[in-house]
Amino acid sequence: MLSAYTDFIRIRFLTMLAYRVNYYSGILIYMLNIGVYYFTWQAIYGDRGEIGGFTASQMTTYIAVSWMARAFYFNNLDREIANDIRDGSIAIQFIRPYNYLFVKMMQGFGEGLFRFTLFMIPGMLLALLLFPVRLPSDPAAWIGFLVMLFFSFLINSQLNILTGLMAFFVENNEGMMRMKRVIVDLFSGLVIPISLFPGWLSSIMQWLPFQAITYLPGSVFTGRTQGTGILEVFGIQLIWFFGLLIPIFFMWRAARKRLFVQGG
């Protein structure tokens, strides 16, 4: 059975590989994004030394690594699940002796592996050439970042699963999926680091899972969080990962009862 789950990772990886040309343009778009934010922040900083606890050079590194992390953790599990529900092919998933959500997670991971090796790493190398990005010298920062990056993927996928499953309860969750994407990009600190949010908003963010996706791993990579601080922020990720399993469990159970296979 376990080998079946790893097969889902392998097959998704190979399928993505077959469509890899699509991702070359993706790298370009991400570079453009990094460029836009880089020059915007350059202008904002001028000759100021520090904004919201970030030096100009930390900000550049933060932008680059945040976008490249997104290149890895991003996936369309929400859309895939919603489509399965809407066109009724979810029925096929129920006649198989496996857990649908676990399979989706595995497929997401297969996609993640592809994105990591063929999107994130070459993208990061390109970013290093184009922008003054400073890589951490502390091995703890590297290890902490990579482990946390994996949990970014898990937490982001969990949010995607929750959004996708909403298709069981509302007729059309398209709006919800779009809203989720904007919220994750904004509140995870991808667009603006959370420490730059107004005080009240950044204190709300402390209690939401989004910071665990981009902001916390980014802080480790830029060296703003060091030593035992790394374990602390990793702890926050762990809490969110286990915490999000609860709503998924209940939503899945409710969905099983509500299931209405579209199209007969």
Partner: peptide
């Protein structure tokens, strides 16, 4: 018909 089959196969409760 299909609804029955879906209950018999465990898809629908």
């Amino acid at each position: 018909k299909s609804t029955t089959i879906k209950m018999l196969t465990g898809i629908l409760v």
